[in-house]
Nucleic acid binder design. Structure first.
Ligand SMILES: [Mn+2]
Ligand SMILES: [Mn+2]
Ligand SMILES: [Mn+2]
Ligand SMILES: [Mn+2]
Lengths: 219, 219
DNA sequence: AATTATATTTAGGCATCCCTAAATAAATGT
DNA sequence: ACATTTATTTAGGGATGCCTAAATATAATT
């Protein structure tokens, strides 16, 4: 049996790896889970015992085949539940993360798959993140970070890479939504902030913000 | 903060009390939660510390006002989730208990109330048990145990008092459902088993079964 | 290459929740 | 009333998961 804590560690390792594509460090995990690096070292050893991760002291961690399978299941549940909360229960996209953080640990294959069916097999969660399929496949998307495209680029907002409610509420306030069409009018060299056209309004947003928005380039 | 284990203890105390109307004994709790009486004694002391129960050594436990409030919230969530699983996700009534046992611990007032709304404010769960309201009120129902009514009684099945899947599957097989109309044709004195008319069929059921079925008497 | 700074692991401890065995209180039978 | 059975609590201990402080390995600087 796998415990709730172990599940959170596996998911954290997966998320970090999906972002950085690298072996995952103890410190990174501690950062994500808000625990001490010492606790992480301890837990990693337990996960290694269970063959859920590959681990070499001082070198970092990666998920084993079975560890990755479990992590993908949890991520799938997290994103399905977020979709449920927004699409069926009228939550806003900034309110769902903490609740999904709890719901993702409910153990019932049948529940997950029935939920998937009930939601009509969604491909993306309310933040534009892809939902792993029943077989653990994450459909690859060709999206780029808004912070990395040049001036005059036109694009469609496809997703965000953090669930922090302050961030999401700010986007809502700016009227930035999944699917919104935007154009980069200017990039300030000094702080890399951007002047963005959205609808008939123009907004100035910082690099901290552009760094967390994924777009699909059009035209 | 209240832990998952503490929640399960509170709910167990409430359920036992709702059935027996008495002070609750250590042994009864241990029975329901499948733990040792020693563990129960320990936990009760902790709950007393937190003013969630009233307790006198060797005399038994009862819920305090705040303990009862919490317990009712958990019971409310349990029954709302069971209703969700049956009404929206097409689970059968015999499959939902274990999943609801997990879902009931998800902490979000907003989720509970949105779910209630989404389900159209149901009054009873799939087993016919009343769902406590937002304010913790259980609507009183005038139902009787099938095992306690005399011969020739006609009634409608209103609920069951156990969620065990073997029992529920057996009822389904007999075509006994919430709302079914039945008539007691005969009561065998020797073992108190009953011959029951349901639709145009006649079924013989044991006292163990009639003891777990609630009916409303008609005519 | 040696020194310093940073990352990681180990040591020792604490809280929670569970257990079995032993002690004690309450209930029951004679 | 006394002895026995049953219910409950206490004692002692194990597993999990977290922490801080200390030790050690690795990376960065000079
Ligand atoms: Mn989680
Ligand atoms: Mn998310
Ligand atoms: Mn439970
Ligand atoms: Mn139930």
């Amino acid at each position: 049996m796998i415990t709730l804590s172990e599940e959170n560690y596996l998911k954290a390792i997966l998320s970090i790896n999906l972002e950085t594509k690298n072996i995952v460090s103890t410190n990174e995990i501690a950062g994500v889970l808000n625990t001490s690096p010492a606790s992480v070292s301890e837990m990693i050893k337990k996960l290694e015992e269970k063959n859920l991760v590959n681990y070499e002291k001082y070198k970092g961690v990666s998920l084993s085949k079975s560890g990755e399978k479990l992590a993908l299941e949890i991520l799938r549940k997290h994103r399905l539940w977020e979709t449920f909360l927004v699409n069926k229960l009228e939550f806003s996209w900034s309110e769902v993360h903490d609740v999904a953080e709890q719901l993702e640990h409910v153990k019932s294959k049948k529940l997950t798959n029935k939920l998937d069916h009930f939601l009509n097999y969604p491909k993306f969660d309310p933040h534009g993140e892809p939902i792993p399929s029943k077989n653990g496949i994450i459909s690859p998307t060709k999206r780029v970070l808004l912070s990395e495209v040049p001036i005059k680029t036109k694009g469609i907002i496809m997703g965000v890479s953090t669930d922090e409610s302050e961030f999401l509420d700010y986007l809502t306030q700016l009227n930035f939504k999944i699917g919104s069409k935007i154009k980069i009018l200017d990039i300030i060299l000094f702080d890399k902030s951007m002047k963005i056209q959205i609808g008939d309004k123009i907004e100035q947003i910082s690099e901290e913000v552009t760094n967390n928005i994924h777009i699909k380039i059009i035209e």
